[in-house]
């Protein structure tokens, strides 16, 4: 279980990083925290010709207050966001989600951008950031572009990034004081990838009502019917309604998985609507 041969480069800045990726012609891969890529290299499931190590790029490590939003650099580790609890008003959900990712040792190295780019369907950030209505900032040889977090993942382990592009950062709208949100995932044991997950955000001040379920075959799926209904009523929908909504949103789930996803969504909604 040792990696196959690869070349290694450590660019000085983002521009050089995207240039190296472009030169790699699809055979280059960016390395950030390495918490997923590392094992995949060792298992020889990932076999890049060139590893572009972006883990020391200072320009990816900033967290800044943008007034109505927070901007989080792609290279910010989960543990930094976890430890920022209480110091990022309007981003309480971000801090809570960060604290629940894997184990502390993984959080110390794993990054928010790396997790988004890796696009594991069971990961926390694609789900949470979709529910928060975040925007992903992408850097490439031709400059920067922005994509809704919800649209970044196109399938399991595939994204809208092209070979030479990197995630530079994430912009997350601040939640208002009136916002209600919930985040629940069910793991066989804490720290493992979940069997089912759900994120819900209701913020009437921002006209936001988003309900997503994750840990599916592909990207997180929005349940807009439930979102609209809960935003209007402020009450928890009935079990049958939740079950039916999950079945519509993820028709390939078998009975057991549907039951589990419904139970998990129900818990996330409960957190949001609880008095």
């Amino acid at each position: 279980m040792k990696a196959a041969k690869f070349d290694y480069a450590r660019p000085r800045d983002l521009a050089e990083a995207t240039k190296l990726l472009a030169q790699g012609n699809g055979a280059a891969k960016a390395l950030a925290g390495g918490q997923s890529l590392g094992p995949m290299l060792n298992l020889r499931l990932a076999r890049p010709g060139l590893l572009v190590d972006i883990s020391r790029l200072e320009e990816l490590k900033a967290v800044s207050d943008g007034g109505d939003h927070w901007r989080i650099g792609a290279g910010v580790t989960h543990s930094r966001l976890e430890d920022a609890a209480g110091r990022m008003p309007g981003a309480e959900m971000i801090c809570l989600v960060a604290a629940g990712i894997a184990y502390r040792s993984v959080r110390n190295r794993g990054t928010i951008g790396g997790s988004l780019a890796h696009a594991d369907p069971a990961a926390d950030w694609p789900l949470a950031l979709a529910a928060l209505g975040a925007t992903v900032e992408i850097a490439g040889p031709k400059g920067k572009r922005r994509v809704a977090a919800q649209a970044l993942m196109s399938g399991a382990f595939t994204t809208a990034l092209d070979d030479a592009e990197l995630i530079a950062g994430v912009t997350v709208p601040k939640l208002s004081a009136k916002a209600r949100w919930g985040y629940y995932k069910f793991c066989i044991k804490p720290g493992e990838f979940p069997e089912a997950s759900a994120a819900v955000v209701f913020d009437s001040a921002r006209n936001a009502a988003r309900v997503f379920i994750g840990a599916l075959d592909g990207p997180p799926v929005a349940l807009s019917g439930i979102a609209v209904a809960v935003a209007a009523s402020g009450a928890l929908p009935g079990a049958a309604e939740i079950d039916a909504a999950v079945a519509r949103a993820a028709p390939s789930l078998d009975a057991v998985d549907r039951r589990l996803h419904a139970a998990v969504l129900s818990r996330a909604l409960q957190q949001a609507v609880a008095p």
Partner: peptide, 8 residues
């Protein structure tokens, strides 16, 4: 000489 080379 190394495990990686043996795996290669």
């Amino acid at each position: 000489a190394t495990r990686a080379e043996a795996e290669d």
